[in-house]
Write a protein that binds this DNA or RNA. Structure first.
Lengths: 238, 238
DNA sequence: ATTATGTGTTCGATTATAGAACACGCATAT
DNA sequence: ATATGCGTGTTCTATAATCGAACACATAAT
């Protein structure tokens, strides 16, 4: 067998890549898996998976339940703490402010190739039927206002050079002029979203966004609050 | 050189262990590092670090800034999303409730050997000088009410068998009787904390806790709210 | 009893990895 | 201009880490 045959990403380091895949599979699976199941999902021999899992367990990146099944461990939360830490800290109070004053869920998402990843979220205090937007969730960048806002941080030709294969949405060009993006029904039916681009020095393009059940809300007005908050966040990040 | 010589943890898989160490170093460093710096911190040859970093980058576990320096990437947030997901979901609304009704920061921490890791936190709505307790932060289990509450989930002899070297605190035995733990000044000066143990089926022992600036608060009363919330969370996890 | 399914361990052949050496870009100092 | 230092990225071969089969063992279902 040639090295890395068939794997989608021909990463230079096989063992490390497999270990990460194990974590990815575990995170995606909504339940604990047996080592055998995981080995099968990874397409490797059980003893290989076993050794990898032992290593991951040593670092608390996974833990075992009573039956010996494996699931993501607390070490991952520690590692994730370092992701755009400055942005997280700077954004949190502004998100709280936005969520409560607009009565909407507010969050920050960052660019990750053809997707965007939600980083921090704050639900409004009376979070009854609030739209749940968990940290760590991925979305295609082509769907929803946050994705458009992130695309709008690039010019069209820049984007096509960086992420070939993913089209540059016409809405992004418009958002580039307006300074904000709005969407309806794109990610979840009946849910609207407004987002503004967020520029972090030395970090990836991100978006500051809110989601809400469709109502008589003027996107431009919401965008005003978002832009003001984004300015404050960017100012704090120097 | 003998395999894994000198490394604190003699994990079975060297490459994977090194990759994780790279992530740990990055998460701890408050700033982006050059590859050379990271290689130095890892104690490996630069080309080794380079290959490892490329692999991590492929999986979005790290990203590079303009100068080529590396920092934690959004993929980590995705992986962390899977950590005790059920507990996170079940606890979030209860945390919000607690934070706002008690005007304290509320959070859930889980056991991790001789430490505990904060998973989810909710600050009260008027989060002025609220005590900041970020998700993903580690604390020695020997300091603070959450640690005591977690220890109290074990009997003393159980604990000593599981985590040799870390003493079983006398307060844990007391908390075992009372059903809650309280601490003052242990982690941060002037800050008090109350915590109750949280038992998750198939998961590790955890704690539900609040922190507040010292005031005329009766710990027992606060513990009542915590216990009620903990019961509801546990009931939902069935 | 027997079968099935799981974890954990050992061990030799093989292969993925380690680490030196090199090419190159880009600052800043000389 | 030239030199020097510091950084990334690439190539290559000996070596050591890894792979994966085979085995021992525990547990639950048949």
């Amino acid at each position: 067998m040639t090295p890395n045959a068939g794997t989608a990403q021909a990463s230079p380091s096989q063992t490390l890549s497999r270990g990460i895949r194990a974590l990815e599979i575990l995170a995606e699976a909504q339940q604990p898996l047996t080592i055998a199941e995981l080995a099968d999902a990874m397409g490797v021999h059980r003893s290989v998976a076993y050794r990898i899992l032992r290593t991951l367990e040593d670092h608390s990146l996974l833990v075992r339940d009573d039956g010996g099944r494996v699931q993501p461990g607390p070490g991952l939360a520690v590692l994730a703490r370092g992701v755009s830490r400055d942005l997280q800290s700077a954004a949190l109070p502004e998100l709280t402010q936005l969520a409560n004053s607009l009565t909407m869920s507010a969050f920050v998402a960052v660019w990750d190739r053809e997707e965007c990843v939600t980083l921090v979220t704050v639900d409004p205090r009376h979070s009854g039927a609030a739209v749940v937007q968990h940290p760590g969730s991925r979305h295609p960048i082509s769907a929803g206002a946050p994705g458009i806002a992130i695309q709008s941080a690039f010019a069209e030709d820049q984007w096509e050079a960086l992420v070939p294969g993913i089209p540059y949405r016409a809405e992004a060009a418009e958002a580039r002029r307006l300074g904000y993006a709005a969407s309806h029904d794109e990610v979840i039916a009946g849910v609207s979203s407004v987002a503004v681009p967020l520029r972090v020095p030395g970090g990836r393009p991100a978006a500051l966004a809110v989601v809400y059940i469709r109502a008589a809300q003027d996107p431009a007005e919401v965008a005003g609050s978002l832009t003001a908050a984004a300015r404050r966040i960017e100012a704090q990040l120097g």
